[in-house]
Write a protein that binds this DNA or RNA. Structure first.
Lengths: 157, 157
DNA sequence: CCATAAATGAAAATGATTTTCATTAACAAG
DNA sequence: CTTGTTAATGAAAATCATTTTCATTTATGG
């Protein structure tokens, strides 16, 4: 099925080159892991997942690449309070798979939820527009997280 | 004007003792700075502000106290992406002064906004309730931030 | 005033992220 | 396909915010 406009060894190629970046093996591997993983990976998680196939790619490169991806808006950098940054692939253009996070403050478990997302996104868009105008910001992104205590952690009262 | 139910050297006393914590000079000083400051202070900011009057209070204590306050819900720990945590006094019970943040991803400037807050808070409350039930979370807090490029940073195109 | 456990400071440890710098590799041009 | 330019890289060292250790101090109940 060679259908679809983003096939082959990465539709990233274009995006990268347009911004003056080179597409290297390491970067491709990182992008690959990110796009296929569910979770919220730390730099080291990514490093480990890649290390099998690409022992040559170092942790430093992972960090550097995540920085680039982050600044390109292809990846979201998240903080769930466990002392390390987590990275998540920024999904397709139309908010496909758009979700937010529910974080347990005791065990740091994170649940991705999509419930009520439509209302949230609508409000967000409005707010975004309003804030953008009022404060002359070019808004590119938002973050919503809920914090609480999950069932297990709450159990042991 | 000795009016109001939270006067004197801190209505914190009660909250602390109820949880088995002792109210010390250092803690009081930290709470004092936090409750009077506008901004989003880092641990070191707080340490410096206190150091004038209380040279005895060390940075370690600041960190430890912020941890306690955070777990008591009296302070919110925030991450604006500049590599250090920021702390903000959690205002009164009824959402007084409730606000969210608009963060410039280039210069890390943070704007507190209260626009649209009512709608946001209402949606948030509903979502909170819904999520809490569905995922069996006891939700205690939420975080909303918008990211973008501020006027100055965007100016130099 | 005393006893006890919490709180503290100073210094050392930790650990994620960044920087340095010499080397390698991507890619445009010929 | 070869080559030159310059971005990208790895390894090791450096940073730097935060945490831990441990001996000492202090708040608070009795």
């Amino acid at each position: 099925m060679p259908r679809g406009r983003c096939r082959g060894q990465g539709w990233w190629h274009g995006k990268f080159r347009d911004c003056g970046y080179r597409l290297t093996l390491g970067r491709e591997a990182i992008l690959d892991v990110l796009s296929k993983s569910e979770g919220h990976l730390s730099a080291e998680d990514i490093y480990m997942k890649i290390h099998h196939r690409h022992p040559g790619v170092g942790l430093t490169t992972v960090y550097r690449t995540l920085d680039v991806l982050s600044s390109l808006g292809m990846v979201h950098k998240l903080d769930f309070g466990d002392g390390r940054s987590r990275y998540e692939f920024a999904e397709g253009p139309k908010g496909v798979h758009h979700h937010h996070h529910l974080v347990c403050t005791q065990c740091n478990k994170v649940i991705d939820y999509t419930d009520f997302i439509d209302d949230e996104v609508e409000l967000l868009n409005q707010t975004e527009k309003g804030l953008g105008q009022k404060y002359k910001f070019k808004i590119t992104n938002h973050l919503i997280q809920f914090y609480g205590v999950c069932e297990e952690c709450g159990g042991r009262k």
